[in-house]
Design a binder for these strands. Structure first.
Length: 274
DNA sequence: TGATGTGTTCTGCT
DNA sequence: AAGCAGAACACATC
């Protein structure tokens, strides 16, 4: 489940492998979710050079030398792989890009096919639905701004953390981890949390995201970097996926329940509801 | 065979 | 207006 650290890991991997390279061939399967049409998509990519790579929330933005930007969302199971051309492409490689003077190619792989690749003029990219309404970046905002956003709304903190219009990049894993660190119950109402506690939560989010980035992300489902290697943060998880295991603070079992129609993992003893 | 989980958008309800 | 629930998307995994 790529969240901010996993997407950053992919962006870093792309910079390290294909930055500045020119696309010489494009293979698109009918299973690929792309925009615009296959014909125009191919035409916009062939001959273009990768100019820069950016992350915005969980979105990947790749600027091309022709004034267009390739926008990729990995959703749950999307991957970019940079592999030798001689390695056969698999069933779930939906788009394959050949590169100039390179015996490796770049594949977009997604076994659930929720992920997509879209191309728009660079000048119009941030007005696209899905990018236009995104909230601030948690690693670039102040604790005050963070507290303001949650203080002025009334909803459960866990679903609020997942809402990309409030802040970006946090998904199910890092929301559960951050709330455990801050000893906040996932159902706690945002407007009832003190400014000091919200600032503390923001600090935990930053610490956790940064540590996960240094560890190349968390691989619980299928996440892997551009080099096809898994991340390493899963060994630090204290709440997510630890249902039934003793809480590392109070030894009581970690609970799992549906909150806002997503599974939440937390300690009902040291993460207080009020 | 069928339920589950996953990020996001959309619809419809309160 | 704001918040929430449920559906939809697709499919490997259990």
């Amino acid at each position: 489940m790529p969240e901010l650290p996993e997407v950053q890991t992919v962006v870093d991997g792309l910079v390290a492998t294909v930055f500045g390279k020119t696309i010489t061939s494009v293979q698109i399967k009918n299973s690929a979710r792309i925009y615009p049409s296959q014909y125009r998509f191919r035409k916009l990519l062939i001959g273009a050079r990768f100019v820069s790579f950016r992350r915005r929330g969980k979105n990947i933005l790749i600027d091309l030398s022709n004034g267009h930007t390739l926008w990729v969302h990995l959703k749950m199971t999307g991957h970019f792989y940079y592999l030798p051309e001689k390695d056969l492409t698999g069933k779930h490689d939906h788009v394959v890009l050949g590169l100039e003077n390179d015996s490796y190619n770049l594949r977009f792989n997604d076994y659930r096919r929720f992920g997509y690749l879209k191309i728009y003029p660079t000048s119009e990219i941030f007005s696209q639905k899905g990018l236009a309404q995104l909230g601030p970046e948690p690693l670039e905002m102040s604790a005050n701004e963070f507290a303001q956003i949650y203080k002025t709304r009334r909803r459960m903190i866990k679903p609020a953390l997942l809402d990309q219009s409030m802040i970006v990049g946090v998904g199910n894993i890092y929301a559960d981890e951050s709330l455990w660190m801050a000893r906040l119950h996932p159902e706690r109402m945002t407007d009832s949390i003190s400014n000091a506690k919200l600032a503390e939560l923001h600090g935990h989010i930053q610490t956790i995201l940064n540590k996960a980035i240094s560890n190349m992300g968390t691989s619980v489902d299928s996440f892997a970097g551009v080099n096809a290697k898994p991340g390493g943060y899963q060994k630090y998880l204290v709440a997510y996926g630890r249902e039934g295991e003793p809480c590392q603070r109070c030894d009581k079992p970690i609970r799992r329940m549906k909150i806002g129609s997503r599974s939440a993992h937390f300690c009902s003893f040291c993460q207080r509801a009020r």
